[in-house]
Design a protein around this nucleic acid. Sequence first.
DNA 1: CATAATAGTTTAGGGGGTGAACTAAATCAA
DNA 2: TTGATTTAGTTCACCCCCTAAACTATTATG
Lengths: 148, 148
Amino acid sequence: MNKQIREAVELFEEVMIFGTARVIRSVDNPLWKEYSPQQIQMLKIIHKYGPITSGRLADVQGVHKSAISNRLKKLSDQGLIQMVKTETDQRAKLLELTEEGARIVLQSDRVLYEYLEQLLSGQVEEQEVEQFIAMFRKLKNILRWDGE
Amino acid sequence: MNKQIREAVELFEEVMIFGTARVIRSVDNPLWKEYSPQQIQMLKIIHKYGPITSGRLADVQGVHKSAISNRLKKLSDQGLIQMVKTETDQRAKLLELTEEGARIVLQSDRVLYEYLEQLLSGQVEEQEVEQFIAMFRKLKNILRWDGE
DNA sequence: CATAATAGTTTAGGGGGTGAACTAAATCAA
DNA sequence: TTGATTTAGTTCACCCCCTAAACTATTATG
């Protein structure tokens, strides 16, 4: 089996699978202590895709509906998400962010931005950032989780 | 704030933080159903660094000793890990893989290899693999979790 | 109208993690 | 040497994540 590919696989595992978890744990910010990455992701998805149903959220996050149900309860208890009435389907619940929820999303963007900036400062060339973007765009497309 | 960096941060988040979890969940293989990524990682670390103590494992995996204790119990119950006597320090427990444990490590390498191969087949140029390796080597160094 | 499909919730069970309390062994120091 | 302190690991309480199956309520369909 191709030696080069072997190294790629190993790096993929070390950086993506094992490394990511460490990075997340090492971000030292109250916002990340208070909300899990999955909760933040849920807020971001709602922020981006406007009023959205639980079911759709489950598809986008790639988990079962029950996982969303659970998160929803926690986040709406904290006043970050609110329900909107649906005229059409009485079963569906449309979710949207409260102002506080939107604030958290913006704040979390800043936190990650600052963390990465500090992590990368002086380590990366302008040109490497371009390469990084190109490669990660590609990765995103390849991994293109089928749930769209 | 720099638009290019903003995109890099967003891609980092989408691919690394959110994407990785999806990839892991979507690997459809009995081995990955039976053992968690953290369990696999623990086996690999023991495989690579020979007889090793719990404490050292906690450092390498970047978690508390109690998390390791828990995993250790599960994995040794399944006969993948065994204890070696230490002559020097009676408190320390040196861990090593059983033959079955070593088998699992090799098998798990194959599973990931095959999964990625199938995922990337026809999507990636030879040259891109080189770029990928270069960039991930760099990422690995930058993220260089301090626990060595 | 009765049956089937769909949206969400709930519950049980297993994975991950932290932090503090606790045992036992090793070290240090008076 | 002995008493205090540090160190290696375990255990426990508590939280998050997830799946899968059972269950309600509403909508669609034959």
